[in-house]
Amino acid sequence: MRVQLRQICHARSGDKGDTANIGLIALKQGFYHIIEIEVTAARVKRHFDGIVLGPVERFEIPNLGALNFLLHEALGGGGTKSLKNDAQGKTLSSALLRMEIDIDDNIRL
């Protein structure tokens, strides 16, 4: 079945200069292995096409059931330079939770 990440994860995002980070956290430990396989750096880069201009890096934190993504050149210059309403990338967490992935029909949400 097709699910939106918001059904199996929660997330928080923030900034460091012109780089945004998104911590994507599985709502149940059992969901971690799904996002570990499905939510690759390349897929996140495609998801944010037109928003993230630089590369996307991914780090795994299995003990927290979480993935950390660094989105480079994502904040219009960052800091006080950015002309974006969301200059600190605070809402990019929910933008990632829009992503749709296919999971096994037998998985209970």
Binding site: A11, R12, N21, I25, F59, L70
Partner: peptide, 26 residues
């Protein structure tokens, strides 16, 4: 968990002047 992942880079190497902390051990 949400606060732990806030504004971090490489979770294995969280660098401060005091030490390098490993978030994958928490």
């Amino acid at each position: 968990k949400e606060q732990l992942v806030y504004e971090i880079g490489d979770p294995k190497n969280y660098i401060t002047p005091d030490c390098v902390a490993d978030f994958t051990t928490i």
